[in-house]
Design a protein around this nucleic acid. Structure first.
Lengths: 143, 143
DNA sequence: GCTTGAAATTTCAGACTTGAAAAATTTTGC
DNA sequence: GCAAAATTTTTCAAGTCTGAAATTTCAAGC
């Protein structure tokens, strides 16, 4: 008997979640052992690396799909370590811009290449065609 | 210059992570609003529902890809709520079996169908062919 | 038997995460 | 102008999660 479509979506989701968690685990381990950092810290720095001019706290939490409160504490720690800087907005006193410091920028550049290599290692099992197909399907989820 | 293929794997991973986090967020919201529970609790109960005879704590944390310490605290809370029961092994006094109580079993059965429908809703954008292709590709990641 | 090492679980400190509430500021509608 | 609503960020309590250390028990070799 053929599974109802909803059951197949469920199975696909369970597998998707498993693969993602396993990959996250490997990256977490890599960041911890090789670079003494964590995934959330890396995520924040990566977001700020992409937006060099700086982003507001709200933009940051939207980019990372985490709550505002969460973004605040991770940024707090990165700021205490001198990797990130908060700058109050001139035009709106509620708003704060966050950006990498030169130290943060340098540290992230050192990390980025190795991180990319590690991701490539984790997904080495996927062919070029797989990557295309996967990206294509993933785009279709949100729309 | 970095290998373009590794960059494509990285982009696929970033998209994969984004889709997974967005879906997790929707399911979390669904469980919280409609059923006053959380994703980790649901995950534990789902694992125990699949293995009715019970599992050891180590098996449980391997199934969910979480640390032993984490499994302990989530099971602690479910046990305090009477949804889960710990039973010491007869043959190995280090080992503990965990299983759903009748209350836990009943609660999960009420949840499961709605959860499946919610997952189907989240991934409604994917066709049958997409599901097949996706599942196929995901299988290839681990091997 | 005894000792050493391995295995299962819990405990612990610290970090992450959420969602709600609070505080400060800006915008909007009158 | 001004009161009410909306926006931005932080604070807070509670739950989740990790990795290492501690505890208890079992297994293996001598």
């Amino acid at each position: 008997m053929s599974d109802p479509l909803s059951k197949r979506r469920l199975k696909m989701w369970i597998r998707l979640l498993g693969v993602t968690r396993a990959a996250e685990g490997e990256l977490r381990e890599f960041l911890r052992v090789k670079h003494a950092t964590t995934l959330p810290r890396f995520d924040v720095m990566a977001a700020l690396y992409r937006k060099r001019e700086g982003v507001t706290m709200s933009e940051l939490s939207r980019m990372l799909l985490v709550s505002n409160g969460n973004a605040t504490t991770v940024v707090d720690r990165l700021e205490a370590d001198g990797l990130v800087r908060r700058t109050p907005s001139e035009t709106d006193r509620r708003t704060v811009f966050v950006a990498l410091t030169p130290e943060g920028f340098a540290q992230f550049e050192g990390l980025a290449a190795e991180h990319e290599a590690e991701v490539a290692r984790v997904f080495a099992g996927l062919s070029e065609a797989d990557l295309d197909a996967m990206t294509d399907i993933l785009k279709r989820v949100g729309s």
